[in-house]
Amino acid sequence: MGFIEADNLRKQFDPPRGVIAVDGVSFAIEAGEIYSLLGPNGAGKTTVISILSCLLRPTEGDARVGGNSVVHQAAAVKSLIGMVPQDIALYMDLSARENLVFWGKMYGMVGAELNRRVDEVLELIDLKDRQRERVDKYSGGMKRRVNIGVALLHRPQALYLDEPTVGIDPQSRRAILDAILEFRNQGMTILYTTHYMAEAQELSDRIGIMDHGRMIAEGTHEELVRIVGEDAHVQLSVDRNLEALMNVWPTLDGVGTVSAENGKITLLVHDATSTLPYLFETAQREGARITEISVMEPNLEMVFLHLTGRALRD
């Protein structure tokens, strides 16, 4: 039994004709696990996280956090979770400390306990030295850190992060990803939404891929990649003799299927490094020249492409 369990969640806005944002989504996240919801914009990730935060009531289905229903036991659920929204949901004209103190009060903290915890969180997000500066004077990365810090104030057992690295510099992104791994190591359960494949791949113990409100695949990174097999995709263009090469290349060792579309050839190869020299050699032999080439190792992008026919970034 997972710490977070979603059971056949469905959310339709303005029923009966409104948009179905989430359609029959089920998954479970074990305690201390990082689970990423990966999908393009509009896939339904934020709606799922909103339902799990008790911000939206599902049209059908239910979800449980620490055994509490998000529909019937919202107060208990809220005490267990910390929510980091995609937007910088802070007060820009207040300082980091003033923000943390205010949000701490909203979580029901008071007095010395509140001040102590604010100090700890400022230490954690590395803003102790600049705690009294107004948030609107901070860089994007510093704002994101305060945004995360707010969600940590009441020591939640689960942390939801909705695309927390959007629009920040690589250094700040690295710091945030490292912090999330550290939270997991401290035993926190993490639900992370992103449309960056690399983040999901690096962080996650398990990944759920969403598209058009549905969960289209779920598993560890390795399990998901296995859907498209172990082969790398090699895509290339030649200046002439396309048909001759289409006959030669399938006969080479290590080459699987070969297909051509719009003048581009796609090959599935077991080992791109050893196969590429043979491709160039045979092309030269047939009097052709390779003008463009790209290699894609099996990854989540390919999984998404394989399952939906579209690139993740679309």
Binding site: S53, C54, L55, A75, K78, S79, I81, M83, P85, Q86, D87, I88, A89, L90, Y91, M92, W103, M106, Y107, G108, V150
Partner: peptide, 20 residues
């Protein structure tokens, strides 16, 4: 104005994830 900005930047919504 504070209220309009809070709604725009999601702070009002975030308040709903707390105990208030």
């Amino acid at each position: 104005i504070t209220m309009v900005i809070e709604r725009q930047n999601g702070a009002l919504r975030r308040l709903l994830t707390t105990r208030v």
